[in-house]
Write a protein that binds this DNA or RNA. Structure first.
Lengths: 243, 243
DNA sequence: ATGCAATAAGATGTATACAATTGGTGTGAA
DNA sequence: TTCACACCAATTGTATACATCTTATTGCAT
């Protein structure tokens, strides 16, 4: 359990999550414990723990007669997950506005947004890696703003669902037409959200965050309808029901 | 795994949840696996599975150096849990209004509300048991209305948290002054919620459900401030931090 | 007396053996 | 040919033994 030396449970958890997300298993089929344990180089005990956790995450589902199968998601499922993430993040923003946020935290959020500005104005057009990092930072701060550990955990939880996280589609979005314009739109929303929270405008903050989350929906639709060839590159998209 | 013959995991899960909810363990102390396993009459393997699930439910928390401890909740934690339940139930109601609900389901909800009416008008003043049952039924239908399995699961999940469920305080509420008047107020909210959903008024339905959830907060405050002697009778209230 | 270190006891993490249940396959009869 | 029943293989659920890591206690040195 030392640093950099993972426990068997962590190895099984990361390994299995990665296998499932990358679509290594046929959707709906049962995961045979012995075979998967051998594949991951661990025993059944930590593997079963890992499976329990992935069931809790929603990535696997229990079979009544025993064992687990890979969960499959319809596009409606993913849309609902994105909507719920937006709703809870929106609640975090509203609470932040209502209860007030420390100047230190507000400053950190402002720093993150300035970092995004710099990433957008980079000399070579866009510093993509920097954008992704600062975007994740801003969303993490938003969850923290609420002052509620429960809210923060719930947002993290929803973001674990495949394709529901704030940066789920960022890596492949680069191929989209109007990509940079979309990032600039998102950044204006970021600014407005932070302004609303600072001004203690709870309803405005909540509505803005909800709308902001729906950007992920647009990307989902683009990837599945217009550019299905990219599907293989987006982690978790393999779990989308083929219908 | 036959009917009525629980698996060891279920036995451990129900038993441990009950022990924790009833405050059999000192808050914050580590749960010794061997001792608890012996107490529950099972081995460590299913007990550890049960502990993992209770961690996912939020009832236990992991200790960094190994093992689990009983989670403690501040009143703010419980207030946040109630708020989040209200927010997600509100989203379910809004989605129901936006997407439409089948006449069959609407009819079932109406039946539940008529059952509550009858319970409130019983000759001996109040049929309490009937009220509780129909109230739970109405809230379950509300979750179902959304048409989203994810939403339904998240509402169930939030309702598992101690004191966050729609009927968490009902059993002890009888000792409150103005108790029946409070139930009538709640029932008027029920009617308004159903009307808003039927009329496809999403924003109204969402706002009403949020306000409805806050009734639980009032009961929480009453129990902890005015009638702390009742604390022992409410399951889960033992987990409230004594501060 | 206090602080640190070492040791021992006890707890958790992991592997594996065994039991019980499931699911498939093959054979037989209608 | 098809359905049913039985048997066998394979898989999951459970218990337990073992290894590793905590943690508390004791003793020693300052």
């Amino acid at each position: 359990m030392s640093i950099g030396n993972l426990s068997q449970l962590d190895r099984a958890l990361f390994g299995l999550r990665s296998l499932v997300m990358n679509g290594e298993f046929e959707g709906g089929q049962r995961l045979p414990e012995v075979a998967v344990a051998k594949q991951l180089g661990t025993s059944r005990t930590p593997l079963r723990q890992a499976m329990d956790r992935l069931v809790a995450e929603g990535l696997l589902e229990r079979i009544e007669t025993g064992g687990c199968r890979v969960a499959t998601f319809t596009r409606d499922d993913i849309a609902d997950a994105i909507e719920v993430r937006g709703v809870i993040e929106g609640t975090a923003a509203r609470m932040a506005a209502e209860r007030g946020v420390s100047a230190d935290l507000l400053g950190q959020a402002n720093d993150a947004l300035e970092g995004i500005d710099r990433a957008l104005e980079a000399s070579d057009g866009l510093n993509f890696e920097c954008y992704v990092r600062r975007n994740a930072k801003f969303h993490a701060l938003l969850a923290k703003f609420s002052g509620s550990a429960l809210i923060r955990r719930e947002i993290e939880r929803m973001s674990l669902l495949p394709l529901a996280s704030p940066s789920a589609f960022l890596s492949e979005q680069a191929a989209m037409p109007g990509f940079q314009e979309s990032l600039r739109y998102a950044q204006r929303q970021h600014r407005a959200i932070l302004e609303a929270i600072t001004n203690r405008e709870g309803a405005r903050a909540e509505a803005l965050v909800r709308e902001h989350a729906r950007l992920a929906l647009i990307n989902l639709n683009y990837l599945t309808d217009v550019q299905p060839t990219l599907v293989k590159d987006v982690p978790g998209l393999a779990l989308l029901a083929s219908t």
